[in-house]
Amino acid sequence: MAEVVRFENVGLRYGLGPEVLQDITFGLEAGSFHFLIGPSGAGKSSLLRLMYLAHLPTRGLISLFGRDVSTLPHEQLPKIRRRIGVMFQDFRLLPHLTAFDNVALPLRVAGVRESEIRRHVEELLTWVALENHMDVRPPTMSGGQQQRVAIARAVIARPKILYADEPTGNVDDRIAARLMHLFEELNKLGTTVIIATHNEAMVRELGRPILKLNAGRLEIIPSNGTSLESSPDAEEAV
């Protein structure tokens, strides 16, 4: 399987501060499923921000879908981003849009026909048990409802890569299991999934390979039958 994400000796620092990520080297094959774990402040969100092109690395090389992002023309970034779904920890829903319009956003910027948008969005919002909240705006929704809207927005365009930052943090066990099922279904359809989480029980239960960050360094813990590369530091840990 081809790699969709490749990090080579990547380092990241904010301004003149210390490096929050150091010598990160790994590759993710298309259709793989990983958890990203680590204590608070370990650099999980920073690593995700690099993966969804919110930042460029201070050093090292990142390639997405086989293309070096540092040499990618600015005009081509939207095309790459349309193949990536992101569910942010703080949801980042647009407060002036309804749940329906928030979820429809990736399809609208891609120019999908309105009739198709309506069908897909209604179906997905029903799937995440928000069929009665389509016309509700985020500020009047609970945290769990906002989280489900954020997830629906991340997956609506059937992305090739899905990053989810704490996707089950604000929902009950039943919804959490349902969401994880959704991620697995997407993964079976070929989407590469990376889930950042503190939920150790969920990580153990699913038995997927793990990217473990600690103090800005990456350790890769493969699951049975999964072949992964790792950074030099990580190789010792595996």
Binding site: A54, E75, K79, R81, V86, L105, V109, A110, A157
Partner: peptide
């Protein structure tokens, strides 16, 4: 800024 970032992340062109 936050809204623009979100639009970027969902793949909106700068022209949009």
């Amino acid at each position: 800024r936050q809204t623009i970032e979100v639009l970027h992340f969902v793949g909106a062109q700068d022209e949009f």
